[in-house]
Design a protein around this nucleic acid. Structure first.
Lengths: 112, 112
DNA sequence: TCATGTAGTGTATAAAATGATACTACTAGA
DNA sequence: TCTAGTAGTATCATTTTATACACTACATGA
């Protein structure tokens, strides 16, 4: 049973999740719903405006999140998961669970 | 229902999967079993020896794969998934499936 | 004696991701 | 007129990842 590396699509999923801030941005939008730019910035401590903009743009580009601009001053922009983006939930949850177990395991090893 | 970013462990799982060659190395070892260094190198076209060594060392460090050295000349070293490493399978499969659908979706968009 | 095969290492470089910091536009209200 | 608040952009510096490519040790067989 041969895997054909050239047909491996794990990287496509990975490419969307990778980035220092993407997982947490996605989890916040998934679990807490729509957020404004400034709310996200507060919700993700340590991120710079530039990084937040970049990550959001990349996720929007892939149709994972949507961006809604209200023509107001001061500006108001809301970000939320698309239905398509929501299909990532099982993967994120599985990774979170695996990661939790992994971290625990590591901690136990250190104790020996 | 608040997610606490500082408790997000998605990155821990991600950290293990990320690397330009790790997913394919893992898939090959998962689906085709034990491989020697040189077999892996042939199986993963384009990878340099240095990168292969690096990625294997990192995976070994996290206890995902195991390395068995045969005291021979010329050297023989075999790599295989640990039981623990095998627990990543559902995640890799889910990502592969999601990635496949995502790629398809993108191709359909281009046609419009 | 010399080339071969295996599983690497060492050094240098290039490319990509991230970060710090300062800047913009716009309008409402003091 | 001055300040505050939002959602950014622009520029440059730093850090992290990946790549190219030359090099090593060792025993066997020609």
């Amino acid at each position: 049973m041969a895997v054909q590396p050239e047909l491996c699509r794990v990287e496509d999923a990975l490419g969307i999740l990778v980035g220092k801030w993407k997982p947490i941005i996605l989890l916040v939008l998934l679990h807490e719903g729509t957020h404004r730019f400034s709310e996200l910035k507060r919700r993700v401590p340590g991120i710079t405006q530039k990084m937040l903009t970049t990550q959001l743009r990349e996720l929007e580009e892939e149709d994972i999140i949507s961006r809604k601009v209200y023509p107001q001053v001061p500006p108001k922009v809301e970000y939320s998961m698309t239905d398509y983006g929501k299909s990532l939930e099982p993967i994120l949850t599985a990774m979170h669970e695996w990661g939790t177990a992994h971290t625990l395991r590591k901690m136990q090893k250190v104790q020996d």
